[in-house]
Nucleic acid binder design. Structure first.
Lengths: 164, 164
DNA sequence: CTCATTGCAAATAATTTGCATGTAA
DNA sequence: TTACATGCAAATTATTTGCAATGAG
């Protein structure tokens, strides 16, 4: 059961898996009567290609390399749209800003965060996932998603003399 | 190893365990030359007695029943102090505000959050804790703390007709 | 006495919103 | 054409900070 092994730091997703998200989005937009605009398409494609855990600011900077006229508000509104239709997850780590990532349940991962240098490492551990289902069932919860962050000192920072 | 069983919703901590936190705080304040004031003592004791996951606003409201003159800034500053010396943890769930809880590692728990009604249930699962250590070790991390939140639909909300 | 602390108000920072204008469908 | 979308700037919200007055050690 616990045999799948992939590069845990390979953040980007195959084109194939993006197709699913494009469909989700399309369905949502059709149902709500929303429109496909240049800015939305650009922001969405940029998000799909961006590294994981992008902030609005990072995403906007990247978007503006293609179209400098795009404003903050549009990025916020588009990411909210992606969140609403289940394409993106909002995440808040310690720094005061929201980051976004693809809602890729099939390729689910959790995070190891270094409290010294802030480096974020992804991990997958199917045995933990199984236990989560077990716990949720104990409490009668129907599990939809989860967030599992472990904070510690990464190998690099452990080598440095510790601060006091 | 996995035999301890307690009321998972019993949030408050025995007086005995608070003693440890008082000492931590006292040591930190002594080392930094900080002073013990009426406001600080009141805020800290209120925090110790408050339900888990208090927000600044809730805490201030409670504090003001004892002393209406206390201001927001003092509560923020005091909670930051508690966080710095390891007495409290900052937590950010989905709503845009920071909540605080006792940094009680010995009585560690994680959270099950209902996405319908917002109810927060605590759980403990030693087998997950063990696996966390294992994963951290795989990556060479020295684990300091973690945050594990599971989102789903609680038993009560599952009974209600689902919204669309 | 000295310097940390407080309350207030003003300052920040991230995010949201109102509105006139632009533009998919 | 008919709303939805955009960009801008102003508004909001949570949190932080400057400062004069207060108070702990």
């Amino acid at each position: 059961m616990a045999t799948k092994m992939e590069h845990p730091t390979d953040n980007r997703h195959a084109q194939a898996s993006l197709e699913h998200f494009r469909q989700l989005l399309h369905a949502h937009m059709a149902k709500k009567g929303l429109r496909s605009t240049d800015q939305r398409r650009l922001i969405i494609e940029t998000f799909f290609q961006a590294p994981n855990h992008v902030s609005i600011e990072e995403l906007l900077a990247q978007v503006r390399t293609q179209d400098p006229r795009v404003g903050y508000a549009t990025v916020y509104r588009t990411l909210k749209l992606l969140t609403e239709c289940g394409v993106a997850f909002e995440r808040r780590f310690g720094d005061g800003l929201t980051r976004y990532e693809l809602a890729d349940e099939a390729h689910h991962h959790d995070h190891l965060i270094c409290i010294e240098c802030g480096e974020i490492t992804e991990f997958e551990e199917p045995r933990i996932e199984d236990l989560q289902e077990e716990v949720a069932a104990q409490y009668g919860f129907e599990l939809k998603s989860h967030k599992h962050e472990m904070y510690g000192v990464c190998p690099k920072c452990r080598k440095k003399p510790r601060r006091n």
